[in-house]
Write a protein that binds this DNA or RNA. Structure first.
Lengths: 139, 139
DNA sequence: TATAACCATTGTGTGGCTACAACCATTCCG
DNA sequence: CGGAATGGTTGTAGCCACACAATGGTTATA
């Protein structure tokens, strides 16, 4: 690997990192939903299917007590339901309420909104960029 | 702007965001330096030139009391000096010590390290990616 | 059946960060 | 010159996230 290759990788990384961190919407999501980003993340984690507290804790990379606190809060806001798991009375099943689903969608929408510079890039370049990035993560 | 264009922008953003957030070294920097990322960020902010506490607070986007706490800690670790500003006795000038400069360089090195997928991209694609990203931020 | 493991809950403690109040010394400006 | 503004410091309060301990009920297993 040549020095030029290394420099290009670093430069590319620097730009990407700068873009993403300068356009970090996590605080906006927190403000919009009125909750910590982790709680918003919990809602988003539940959009596909309900989860037990243990699974949710693992998904959020938090310990069980904290998962309980998070779900306590979300339940209190009417965004999730917490029921006894049908197959294991020790477990709880956490599922989104309709309001919770709306909140999760809001967060998703905000997080998926690309910065203007991307949207303003000309079509040829954007397509090329998308292809290169897709190849990058396909490996 | 066509639907395809919007989708390409979103997809590109999603990939970039995923890459950067999955390769987030901030915790590693904190662990390596034994301090919060904000403190490491303060050190890095001082590499170009000394700053007053007010400027440092603005750079870090924290309020004055918290900037004081940050600098207190860094000073206590021997990583910065805090002197009365030569032109305004109300102000303090915060500068890196040699140790502080080493710590800042460590953080910079860690943060600038691109992920393997970037380094492993073939030269042609990497060069193209770098050019597209550079054009993106040149606008 | 007894023991171990699992799941969730309750509780304590800590560091990081944010917001804000109050104060003192210094500088600016009318 | 006096009042206002500025820069930094000290202090309080609260939320967030993380770590860990302990508990009780349930399930699995030897």
């Amino acid at each position: 690997m040549s020095a030029g290759h290394e420099a290009a990788a670093r430069r590319s990384w620097e730009i990407m990192r700068g873009l993403v961190l300068d356009h970090d919407r996590r605080k906006d999501v927190s403000d919009a939903l009125g909750m910590s980003f982790l709680k918003a993340k919990a809602l988003r984690a539940l959009t596909q299917e309900p989860a037990t507290l243990r699974v949710l804790a693992a998904t959020l990379a938090v310990d069980a007590p904290y998962a309980t606190i998070i779900v306590d809060d979300l339940e209190g806001r009417g965004l999730v339901t917490r029921t006894v798991h049908p197959e294991d009375r020790r477990a709880r099943l956490v599922d989104l309420t309709p309001d919770g689903r709306v909140a999760a969608a809001t967060a998703d929408r905000m997080l998926s909104e690309p910065p203007a510079v991307l949207r303003e890039l000309d079509s040829g370049r954007l397509r090329a960029l998308e292809a290169l990035l897709s190849a990058l993560v396909a490996d």
